[in-house]
Amino acid sequence: MTTSIPNVLSIAGVDPSGGAGILADLKSFSALGAYGCGVVAALTAQNTRAVTGVHTPPVEFLQQQIDTLFADVRIDAVKIGMLGTAEIVGTVADRLAHFQASRVVCDPVMVAKSGDHLLAKSAVAMLREALLPVSFMITPNLPEAGVLLETRAPETVREMYKMAERLRELLPTSSERWVLLKGGHLPGNELVDLLFDGDRMVELAAHRIDTRNTHGTGCTLSSAIAALLPQRSGLNPVEAAVRDARDYLLRAIAASGMLQVGSGHGPVHHFHALWARPSAGN
């Protein structure tokens, strides 16, 4: 547990609408008491309805961003989001290993809420081989889990249990590592996520909130976990961080109607606990 305000880094893409990517991550970090840093791994032309373009920086400059930051700033946790290409994935994995980064939360971003692909197929193997070994936790949704394991996505909670076990096998067995398998793609009014460390499986349930404002939910959850991991202690600090991060996200989704951003899948309300609700007369 970090006694001072933790410094948490997001390495991800930029969503100009602010609902996902680094901008959403920084909002989550700030809302949950962490100081946010960001390394830009991709630029997107994006709104709440579609991704119309992606531009990635030269890997030499990406490495320079990471090296310069770690040379000066103590980083207490890292959230990994959209990386885009195999070369970028490999560079990020190499630098995190070089600096022995701790509490790396990897959200294997592959497809945007709009359905646009954000990770090249050639990068999936690099993600498995290079990035997962340096990750403390991975947070795939069901389609992403299917891609990582080269199989179909689970269709029941029972199948999720088996997939969580297989995902854990992709992580190093010599140290504490975690899988958070998100079940939001299953039908029904109840959401079930599974948290697994190779020994204990924790089933986390919640009621589904009826809203279209789900843009950036995966980014927000993984960044919330990264912000809270250095701040939790006790018997089960990782489980506590995940439970608190899920609660934060659910409240952000429930309050998303306060915002009016775009005409597609709107963002969640990252600052729901900090901003005053508008008065009826406004």
Rank of each mutant, 00 (worst) to 15 (best):
A252L: 04
A224R: 04
K162I: 03
L235S: 06
D15W: 15
E150L: 05
K113T: 15
P133T: 06
S28F: 00
A255F: 04
V192E: 14
G81H: 10
L181A: 11
I209F: 13
L250Q: 11
P58H: 13
P187W: 13
Q64W: 10
G183C: 13
P237H: 03
L26I: 12
Y35C: 06
G257P: 06
F136Y: 15
V105R: 04
E155F: 01
M163A: 07
L127K: 01
P237T: 03
G18R: 05
L195W: 13
L170S: 05
G115D: 10
R95E: 11
V14A: 10
S174Q: 11
L170P: 04
L83M: 14
L127N: 03
V40G: 06
V8G: 01
G33V: 04
T217M: 09
A280Y: 13
L118R: 10
L32T: 01
L194G: 14
G266T: 00
V40Q: 06
T44S: 14
W275Y: 12
C219W: 05
R177I: 02
V238P: 03
L119Q: 09
G218R: 09
M201Y: 12
L250G: 02
M137K: 08
D72G: 02
G184L: 13
S279R: 14
H272M: 03
P140H: 11
L191A: 14
T151Q: 15
R168W: 14
L119Y: 04
L96N: 10
L249N: 03
V54Q: 09
C219Q: 08
M160Q: 06
D76K: 01
G90V: 07
V54H: 05
G18M: 06
V261D: 01
A206E: 15
K79W: 09
Y35D: 04
A205D: 11
A45V: 15
D25G: 09
A86Y: 02
C106P: 01
F271R: 07
